[in-house]
Design a protein around this nucleic acid. Sequence first.
DNA 1: GTGGTCTAGACCACC
DNA 2: GTGGTCTAGACCACT
Lengths: 122, 122, 122, 122
Amino acid sequence: MITLEASSKTPIYEQIIEGVKALVMMGKMHPHEQLPSVRRLARELGINPNTVQKAYARLRGENLIYSVAGKGDFVADNASRIRDMKRDEIREMFIAATRAARDAGMWTDEIFQLVDEAYSSR
Amino acid sequence: MITLEASSKTPIYEQIIEGVKALVMMGKMHPHEQLPSVRRLARELGINPNTVQKAYARLRGENLIYSVAGKGDFVADNASRIRDMKRDEIREMFIAATRAARDAGMWTDEIFQLVDEAYSSR
Amino acid sequence: MITLEASSKTPIYEQIIEGVKALVMMGKMHPHEQLPSVRRLARELGINPNTVQKAYARLRGENLIYSVAGKGDFVADNASRIRDMKRDEIREMFIAATRAARDAGMWTDEIFQLVDEAYSSR
Amino acid sequence: MITLEASSKTPIYEQIIEGVKALVMMGKMHPHEQLPSVRRLARELGINPNTVQKAYARLRGENLIYSVAGKGDFVADNASRIRDMKRDEIREMFIAATRAARDAGMWTDEIFQLVDEAYSSR
DNA sequence: GTGGTCTAGACCACC
DNA sequence: GTGGTCTAGACCACT
């Protein structure tokens, strides 16, 4: 369910974090649902368990998942706030892109058209 | 004319590259105009000459500047294409952001408002 | 597998680049095969790791290799185009040489004989 | 009569040397004909007289020109051997190109055709 | 262990 | 003075 891009410059553990967030946000995983075990996911992705461990630790640090000793990791109850966090990130993306566009001499019309196309594509 | 953000996680040499591109794009530097020498810019920015050298080498690799032995580095003739290159980059930023926004359940209205605010701010 | 010519005036890092290209072109290295690590190759060649790093960085800039953080560098998928790139370079060499030869009053017969000898020698 | 390419990586003084050789080889300058003075040529080319001086010094070192105190520099009598020197250089170009072509898997037929086209073009 | 970045200092050819 | 190359040594993040 999670796919990695080996040649990408974003670290694997971050790709895993984003992958989990995406699954929850798209409703493919729900609060209190169990995540694949560290070792299992590592095996499936063909990577080092330490890397998965690091990703889960970060997710735990953000209180997006919780651990139950001896049982495994589960999606947290408050996982719905992922949506808000994601929106904040996206806001920043648009702000940065818009400033760059303005500096490059693009007008808002051009941007709106671009967004429209991208939104309805694929 | 070029400023560095020390706390940024983007490498210094890349900040220099972007700085030079921006100067050309904004019309503050023109084809065949001489760039500050490697040593001089390094002194001004308080960094190591090798770091500037690396930035200039990359710019040369993209044919955006050319070097004349014993004289210095100059803005390339075809540097006007920086504008188009930059626009392509910006297009990609908006496409990525828009797709992410759509996946996060945002509507185009929300995006348009966001862009409008960012465009007119500061 | 890569050998350096110390007395050559072409920079070491460029010799490395050509060496890697040659290995791929001759089929001694294949896409997704791992290159010797920066430090290891530096040790083997008796040079500074930074020099190898520079060579690999250039190869990466040409999309002939790709880096995976913490794992190493690998031959790119599209590395087969090295062959075509090399042929274009060779074409240019012959065109330049032929023009010079014509200007120097040499005939094609003379050139053909020269090529024949060089081709079958060593 | 001599033209320089500023952005070229071959040094200016070498471009001058090649320029003088070419003029003699093409019969546009003859033995005992006077060369432009150092200062004059420097002015015409918009470069530093030291650079022209260096080029003339090298040509003198190869006995291709001679100096007469108080009068200037002149094409040497034995300048006809420029042709032979040039041919040796060209031989080397073809040998290098042919070896590279062979290593890249090109056949002599392909080379011959390439040479033929280049020879009759322009 | 891996690659990526940066510094400090040196040497070279060219102008 | 200029850019180009190389070395030595350091620190960082990632696996």
